[in-house]
């Protein structure tokens, strides 16, 4: 399983714009790197990143081969309700990494 670091503000005021930062370890192999025998290292990148709050999608990103290894994704959202944030990364091999974090809105 890949290592993940998630940074969600410990507490947020209602209506406040908060920044959520995520970092995941992944090789993001482009598929264009030659092996030396005329073939290439097969492509293995994270295709999609999705963040949901209590089941409702609040952020989604499609990733492409030009994105560096260990992608760092930061995004903002308006804190309305407390809830459970679920982050998921899906890569070329179909592996899905899922992490959770609590969002506390006061």
């Amino acid at each position: 399983m890949a290592r993940v670091l998630i940074n969600v503000p410990p507490k947020a005021k209602r209506g406040e714009v908060i920044e959520i930062k995520t970092l995941i370890s992944h090789p993001m192999e482009t598929g264009y790197r030659p092996k030396g025998d005329g073939t290439f290292f097969p492509r293995d990148i994270i295709q999609t990143f999705v963040c949901t709050l209590d089941g409702e999608e609040i952020f989604r990103a499609d990733l492409h081969p030009a994105i560096a290894a260990n992608p760092f994704i930061a995004f903002t959202t308006v804190a309305r309700e407390s809830g459970l944030l679920v982050f998921s990364w899906t890569d070329d091999r179909g592996e899905v990494q899922t992490e959770q974090a609590k969002l506390v809105v006061e």
Binding site: R3, L23, S25, A74
Partner: peptide
């Protein structure tokens, strides 16, 4: 900024490993 923030510093992935 990337180095200062432990949740953004990709070197911290190695530290966790």
């Amino acid at each position: 900024q990337l180095q200062r923030d432990d949740t953004a510093n990709p070197g911290m992935l190695a530290v966790l490993d």
